[in-house]
């Protein structure tokens, strides 16, 4: 596969390490009253969609950036990629 790195363009997916659903960026509030349940859901449960999936890839043999890649899991077609820190920054 080729990952369209937002800074570096198309890169061999071999340079990357896959992590999982981009929801893993959104760690629950550890102080919340039901924190343990929220963490269990965060750590263990996945949407696992057959279709468009936002997911985390780490450019480990590259610029060491974490990316949020939007990819169709039924065709492997990639619809976009962003720097995770930008995604997080924009949301905050």
């Amino acid at each position: 596969m080729l990952i369209p790195h937002p800074l570096l363009g198309l890169r061999d997916s071999q340079e990357f390490t896959y992590f999982g659903d981009a929801s893993l960026m959104w760690r629950p509030d550890p102080e919340a009253p039901e924190a343990e349940a929220a963490f269990c859901e965060y750590v263990f449960l996945r949407d696992n969609p057959a279709g468009v999936h936002r997911e985390l890839w780490f450019h480990e043999q590259g610029d060491r950036s974490w990316l949020v890649v939007t990819r169709d899991t039924t065709t492997h077609e990639i619809l976009g990629a962003e720097l995770a820190s930008d995604v997080k920054g924009a949301a905050q």
Partner: peptide, 10 residues
């Protein structure tokens, strides 16, 4: 200049 993989090395 870039970083990439080469024979299982970075």
């Amino acid at each position: 200049a870039t970083r990439t993989g080469l024979e299982h090395m970075s």
